[in-house]
């Protein structure tokens, strides 16, 4: 997923997150394609940032505040990142609980994501 400012919006880009006005009103859903008409109206809707499909082209384009990107990371990568972050405190009694809980949380998300993708494939058949 890329997080881009609207000056980089181009025709044909696919939304990775719904296009919403400041008041929360959804203008175009996830998976929607940007048309020239939509692009010209982004300003009018007071939208500055949009999320589109694709790999980030710069650190700026990495989505804010998502933590580990569950949609692209493998379980091994997730666990390795967690172990790296906790490497100096992994034997601490409270931290052991947090690490276990965090891994369980990511495992659930990962599984939900995998089964979600399978459902998508099933329904498109």
């Amino acid at each position: 997923m890329r997080k881009i400012t609207i000056d980089k919006a181009a025709e044909g880009m696919v939304l990775a997150k719904p296009l919403k006005k400041a008041d929360g009103q959804v203008l175009l859903g996830e998976g929607g394609r940007l048309s020239p008409r939509v692009i010209t109206r982004l300003n009018e809707w007071e939208i500055d940032i949009i999320f589109v499909e694709g790999e980030p082209e710069s650190p700026d384009e990495e989505e804010c505040a998502v933590g580990m990107r569950i949609d692209t990371a493998s379980l091994e990568e997730i666990c390795a990142t967690i172990d790296q972050r906790f490497k100096y405190v992994a034997d601490h009694i409270v931290m052991k609980k947090i690490i276990r809980g965090l891994k369980e949380h990511f495992l659930r998300k990962y599984n939900a994501n995998v089964s979600g993708q399978t459902d998508d494939q099933d329904s498109s058949k």
Partner: peptide
């Protein structure tokens, strides 16, 4: 891993602070 405030490492959580949560291990996820 939300944002970054100068380093990627995590500090040991203080026992006193942890105890105010009264959280069972199974509820952490």
């Amino acid at each position: 891993g939300i944002g970054n405030s100068g380093d990627d490492l995590i500090h040991a959580v203080s026992r006193e602070a942890w105890d105010i949560l009264h959280i069972a291990d199974k509820d952490i996820p």
